[in-house]
Design a protein around this nucleic acid. Structure first.
Lengths: 209, 209
DNA sequence: CGAATTACGAAACGTGCGTATCGAAAGGAG
DNA sequence: CTCCTTTCGATACGCACGTTTCGTAATTCG
């Protein structure tokens, strides 16, 4: 209710969208290196003051753009846990690849984490960005963890399985590849990863209950 | 041989160490936010020119310091794979914790990735830093992967186990926790993680060969 | 010894981030 | 209609990064 009852001059409704659009275009075109606040403001036909009133930092603006690009991942749920997990991981990898190719000079085998690396650093620098990033990921992860937990409850996984831990293994390996070792993430890797995490690596004879 | 046969005035041998020491102290004391080149140069009693002749970027200097702090991790090899892996992961977590507590205001449950986040971002920004980071990690990881592979060859793991993939699951989960979800990493987590990765999560009856 | 080469310190510079200031504009409250 | 509050655009500012310039010091080559 109070949101409509503000006191002074209302904020330009279109400004937010104009700025976000200009920022996204600039980020995807030239990458984070050439991403300057003045350029975005000029491109959005907006004074720098207006921009800083909405996002307190260049990082905040960039994260808003990146988060916006990420939060459209459909979660499959066909009942086949392995297939669903592989599909989900591949979706994530595709989304990451979009941000990885940001900027000029993106060779196909370029081992660069791209914008996600900036996201991690921004989360390390600004506590509030860290909280935002965690919230976004928790929301996304909750869907996948629910997927795992349903499989556990219907008996496809051992009852003592920790869904969150399993998800850490899968998603963690993905991001580890992207951010640190920089090796490519293709579907075959996702399949091997899911298989290994599900069935483990111990010999059958030594398999514990 | 040619290194001694340079032409002009030789570089001040002590300058490198002075700068690195001053940079490390400043990084650990006040974190990356307050880490300024001028301050480091002043603290090391060195002109900024001298500093930039050795490290082309503030990021390069910071990474040199961080890499220096990380590359002293002993790798256990007692023959007990599970115990060795748990110990190794705990060692890594401790090393990460050192960098996590950099800067003022480090509450015990502060979900901040600290300097490692900056390392990831720097690797994304500068290709040469990315190559350096990958080289450092590959060297470290090779030891752990060798550990896994020896266990596989002596029959403690299934012969078709991919050591690198298993390591991705373990290390990835660790860094994922640190960098993104920001949750703490304690020994109990490392134990659960290793157990889950080794024995998998499928029910015994459905266990495939 | 003299010339060429390279490193050093000091200082100035351009650029980008984030802040501050100022006048004008757009709404609500009396 | 007149205040009051808030936003907007424009401009200037301080700070830090990274570069450049310049005079000086150290070392090698001829």
């Amino acid at each position: 209710m109070p949101p409509s009852a503000r006191r002074g001059r209302p904020r330009d409704a279109g400004a937010d969208e104009q700025i976000l659009r200009a920022a996204e275009q600039e980020l995807l075109a030239n990458g984070y290196a050439a991403f300057t606040v003045d350029k975005v403001a000029r491109s959005a036909a907006v004074a720098k003051t207006t921009l800083y009133r909405r996002w307190p930092t260049k990082d905040h603006l960039a994260i808003a753009v990146i988060a916006r690009m990420q939060d459209e991942v459909p979660v499959p749920d066909t009942g086949d846990l392995r297939a669903d997990l592989v599909d989900y991981l591949e979706q994530i990898a595709l989304g990451l690849d979009r941000t990885r190719r940001a900027g000029p000079g993106h060779a196909p085998d370029d081992p660069s984490s791209g914008l996600v690396g900036e996201l991690v650093a921004a989360a390390a620098r600004h506590p509030d960005i860290g909280a935002l990033v965690r919230a976004v990921f928790e929301q996304r992860n909750a869907l996948a963890i629910g997927l795992i937990d349903r499989a556990r409850r219907r008996g496809d996984l051992r009852p003592d399985t920790d869904p969150e831990l399993l998800f850490d293994q899968l998603s963690g390996a993905l991001y580890y590849r992207l951010l640190i070792t920089g090796r490519p993430i293709h579907r075959a890797y996702a399949e091997k990863l899911v298989d290994a995490a599900l069935s483990g690596v111990l010999p059958a004879k030594e398999k514990r209950t």
